[in-house]
């Protein structure tokens, strides 16, 4: 007989009335995304102020939505932007096309391209949603605020579906706002670079010695 099952269904719906509401009153209350939330991209710098991006266009090649446009150019001693031979003269991401899959971040050999937790990307024209290099690049090197494989506890099981963000003890550190940090041409040494840059240790930035 279907009546007990019906009663069960009705009771379940009624129980939800007394549950905590899941709604976030968005413009007033903003939910803090998880540390590895895939939001808007940023282009990172080395601690010495040089751009990490070397203009290799791997991100553009791997992008399934064809959202990234990169034109590389050669560094000259007078105008040095990145440690390598080349740098990205033009770097654009079209957020009308981007699907936030993160493949570009995976592909980046120098870990220049990262994804921030910023999700409020909207605009009133197509042009305003194509982010250019000066919008994407940070003024000061950012610190990774999520644990890398190295930093996780040794018994942490990544493959077993237990990858949970509640394990992270460190509070999320916001991306620093643009300050009068170092920018522009090469000015100093290379020290301390690996502390922040080599998130996935076996794929550190290729440096030109």
């Amino acid at each position: 007989m279907a009546i007990p099952e019906l009663a069960k269904g009705f009771r379940m719906v009624l129980r939800h009335v007394f549950r905590r509401k899941e709604t976030v009153a968005y413009p007033e209350v903003r939910r803090q995304p998880f540390p590895r939330f895939k939001g808007r991209h940023v282009l990172d710098r080395h601690p010495d102020g040089l751009e990490k991006c070397i203009g290799c266009e791997l991100c553009a090649g791997v992008c399934p939505a064809d959202a990234i446009y990169v034109v590389g150019a050669a560094n000259t001693p007078e105008h040095r932007f990145s440690p390598g031979e080349r740098y990205a003269q033009i770097y654009q991401i079209n957020y009308l096309r981007c699907i936030f899959c993160g493949l570009c971040v995976e592909a980046c050999p120098t870990e220049a391209l990262l994804m921030s937790t910023e999700y409020e990307i909207s605009g009133d024209s197509r042009a305003s949603l194509i982010y250019t290099k000066d919008q994407l690049i940070v003024d000061a090197p950012i610190r990774r605020h999520w644990p890398t494989r190295k930093e996780l506890p040794p018994d942490f099981n990544i493959t077993g579906g237990g990858l949970s963000f509640t394990e992270v003890e460190r509070p999320p550190v916001p991306i620093p706002l643009p300050t009068e940090g170092v920018s522009g041409p090469f000015e100093g040494g290379w020290s301390g670079e690996r502390d922040t840059a080599s998130a996935f240790s076996d794929r550190g930035p290729r440096r030109e010695d």
Partner: peptide
């Protein structure tokens, strides 16, 4: 009411 029943506001 239906928002209540779906844990919404």
């Amino acid at each position: 009411v239906i928002a209540d029943m779906q844990a919404r506001i």
